[in-house]
Amino acid sequence: MVTAPSVILRAGLFTNGTFMASSTRVTFPNKLLPYVLLAPQLAITAIFFYWPASQAIYQSVLREDPFGLSTQFVGLDNFRRVLGDPNYLNSLQVTLIFSVATALIAMALALLLAVMADKVIRGKGIYRTLMIWPYAVAPAIAGMLWLFLFNPSMGTLAYLVRSTGYNWDPLLNGDQAMVLIVSAAAWKQISYNFLFFVAGLQSIPKSLIEAAAIDGAGETKRFWTIVFPLLAPTTFFLLVVNTVYAFFDTFGIIHAVTGGGPGKATETLVYKVYNDGFVNLILGDSAAQSVILMIIVIGLTAIQFRYVERKVHYG
């Protein structure tokens, strides 16, 4: 599963130019031992990664009836049907809105808080401790917490909203359901982004900021002309991480809070793969959707490799 940490490690891959290091290293001469050491990981990888992934690709060009009685080769028909399906296009749109909103809100709030934390002198450690723990909350539970607050029958905040006369019911209104899951998803991700922005801010040389201050640049100007551009690598990195998070890791939020509904207002791509495969048992379509998702992951990974390690602020 794509998790946030996995992406970080990916980003660290090319550091020190060691990715394709030459073989000048001192090594041990054993011939058999390295294969034994590699065996457990390779076995698990083959059984649980390569075999199912190739099955997904294979099934994506087959049409099978739900009982598995007959199968026929249909070429790219599944893809054509999936991409022409208004429900699929709807879930693509839902995913895009959800991801962009989640990433923007989570990053903007985290950046604001990180800049503030960089300013204060006392209490830095306490603020950090109090800020990081939602990282440990499972996405599904984050969704439930927000549902407790905002569900119309017993949530206190829902009660307050409704008492102003606003008709708040995320279980019936699609837009409100979207607001709810975006809030929960963004809330959970703030702590993660906060840590990275704090680290990014610390690595900006103070002399640059002081020089600008001497030249008479005010605080706001210093932020937008010096700090923000120098943070660009962190920001870009987090943008990719948050997009991956919103695409894949938020399945739990959607499954626990809205179940893709009301209607199909919060049905994201991953939720639809699950729903078509396990609930509706349309295997060919589900497999085709899996392959499309695979292509999206490869795309995101490629973007990350291409740009993250290039220091964005120079280019």
Binding site: M1, V2, S6, R10, T45, I47, F48, F49, W51, P52, A53, Q55, A56, Q59, F248, F251, V270, V273, Y274, G277, F278, L283, S286, A287, S290, V291, L293, M294, V297, I298, T301
Partner: peptide
């Protein structure tokens, strides 16, 4: 395998 998260191979993995 970084590019093969569980979500993109749910059904076949489940079958296995």
């Amino acid at each position: 395998t970084l590019m093969l998260p569980v979500e993109v191979r749910i059904l076949p993995t489940y079958k296995i």
